[in-house]
Design a protein around this nucleic acid. Structure first.
Length: 476
RNA sequence: GCCGGUGUAGUUCAAUGGUAGAACGAGGGACUCAUAAGCCCUAAACAGUGGUCCGAUUCCACUCACCGGCACCA
């Protein structure tokens, strides 16, 4: 029986199409998933959309469409993008799905109630309609919400609260002992500092009359479940938690890795573990907290007009090239910058001049001088490569591929098999054979990053022929 | 304001208490199996000031700059 491996992406807001940052989260998760499949793990990759939000309703009415139709359209865009990026997800969960998701959210709620951690309280605060949330005085500029340009209303409402404060200490212990591992270290320290100060209880519901979408609180239709006990629960509702058939849940939970962006660290490292503890469920094993992709040194924003649309790049360079760039040049731990020029340079260096050219030169020699395809034994993958994956340093793993390519280029230069084969046919062929074997290794290492290219290289080797056209044509 | 981090070649990063390595980009060279690709060579950097030390880019302090966190912003 093989080991299970459950990995998730965040669920995305369908109020706009996905940008490069979303593509990164998802690609990262997919690369890890594919790597684990190579190890013969029983892998489950989850992604999805976070749909129960007022913002979606507003975006839909702005676009003059029914909310559901609007959602379906956007989700279709997500899926189209994921397809182009070769995201091999096992499930795409939608939190508006009353059959798949809602039972899980309500079951979680019930567990929190049973644990005595849900309480009805009156909440007082400044409510900003634009935020669809309470905001703090500190956020205001001259008494006005700077983001929405309107003054918040002082209101008081009945909410159910989750007793998050009760779990501060427990969650902290879990993180300190590494039972919930947070990568990288800086994010771990950040959240520990936060937990050190203690967490206040959080509001876990909204009055139904105020929000038009959302999951009803079990036993109290006047309230709807607020985002925490809705969105976060997707990770288990997707597996059948709260439904009759919870086979997947039993099989795959707890998650091996949640991939998240740094903006949602607190929810995943504080609220989510606290909920799971309250519900007496196991905690995820690891959180990989990546940074943002900046665009020309600045945060992507609509107003700056510097939002990077992955589909534009894909149509010019192909999904595989975008995947490789994300893996090779975006840090899984810190912010990284993107410019169209840096992308093109990286494409030419890594793919056209690197992997693509190497495949052509080796396979040309093989085609010309080897009588028949060589049979490849399962060859060794560098230990550094597996170590990089084990520590979730995907960038390093991709770098190792580039280093391997460079080493092979150098060896061709040193051994000159194209000459050797003329003077000493046997020796020349032996060198070429070795090169083909090593190219096969490159193909194998490439599998998680560029599944199609990996397959192509292996097929060419099996057919003992060079590519009929360049794998990655050089871009001017 | 408080806490934490960073500041190294044009760019992205690395290392080290004894005068800094790589990749991409730039310039030059010899070759030709290859996508005028690859290989070899060259130029190019330790934010600033002070301190500890025989000696600091590396340790400490301060200054400047940038980044992150500081609770309901997925």
């Amino acid at each position: 029986m093989s080991k299970t491996f459950y990995i998730t992406t965040p669920i995305f807001y369908p109020n706009a199409n996905l940008h490069m940052g979303h593509a990164y989260s998802t690609t990262l998760a997919d690369i890890i998933a594919r790597y684990r499949r190579l190890l013969n793990d029983d892998v489950y990759l989850l992604t999805g959309a976070d749909e129960n939000t007022e913002k979606v309703v507003r975006a839909a009415s702005a676009a003059n469409i029914e909310p559901q139709g609007y959602l379906d359209g956007i989700v279709q865009n997500f899926k189209t993008l994921f397809q182009k990026l070769h995201i091999s997800y096992d499930q795409f969960i939608r939190t508006s799905d009353e059959k798949v998701h809602w039972p899980g959210a309500q079951a979680m709620w019930q567990r929190l109630v049973d644990a005595g951690d849900i309480e009805k309280r009156s909440y007082q605060g400044l409510y900003c309609v634009g935020h669809e949330a309470f905001i703090t005085e500190k956020e205001l500029m001259n008494g006005i919400c700077p983001e929405h340009g309107e003054a918040p209303q002082q209101i008081s409402e009945e909410n159910y609260f989750f007793r998050l404060s009760k779990y501060t200490h427990l969650v902290r212990g879990k993180i300190q002992r590494g039972e919930l591992e947070i990568i990288p270290e800086t994010r771990r320290n950040e959240i520990l500092a936060l937990l050190e100060r203690g967490l206040e209880d959080v509001s876990f519901s909204r009055p139904s009359h105020k929000v038009s979408v959302g999951i009803p609180v079990p036993g109290d239709a006047s309230q709807k479940i607020y985002v925490w006990c809705d969105a976060l629960v997707n990770y288990i509702s997707a597996l059948g938690f709260g439904r009759v058939d919870d086979t997947l849940f039993k099989q795959f939970w707890p998650a091996d890795v949640h991939i998240i962006g740094k903006d949602i660290l607190r929810f995943h490292a504080a609220i989510w573990p606290a909920m799971l503890l309250s519900a007496k469920l196991p905690l995820p094993k690891r959180l990989l907290v990546h940074g943002f992709i900046t665009s020309g040194g600045k945060k992507m924003s609509k107003t700056l007009g510097n939002v990077i649309d992955p589909s534009v790049l894909i149509s010019e360079y192909g999904g595989e090239a975008v995947r490789f760039f994300l893996a090779r040049h975006v840090s899984p731990f810190e912010d990284s910058d993107f410019t169209p020029t840096s992308f093109k340079d990286a494409y030419n260096a890594d793919l056209a001049n690197g992997i693509g050219n190497l495949a052509s030169r080796i396979l040309k020699m093989a085609e010309d001088h080897l009588e028949e395809p060589i049979t490849i034994e399962e060859n060794l993958i560098p230990e550094a490569y597996t170590h990089a994956f084990d520590t979730l340093n995907i960038q390093r793993a991709a770098e190792i591929i580039s280093e391997t390519v460079a080493r092979l280029d150098r060896r061709i230069q040193e051994t000159q098999p194209f000459k050797l084969v003329k003077t000493d046919s046997e020796k020349g062929k032996a060198v070429i054979t070795e090169l083909v074997v090593d190219l096969y290794t490159v193909g194998r290492m490439l599998n998680p990053f560029m599944p199609e290219t990996s397959k192509k290289i292996k097929e060419l080797i099996k057919g003992n022929r060079m590519p009929s056209e360049p794998l990655f044509p050089r871009k001017a």
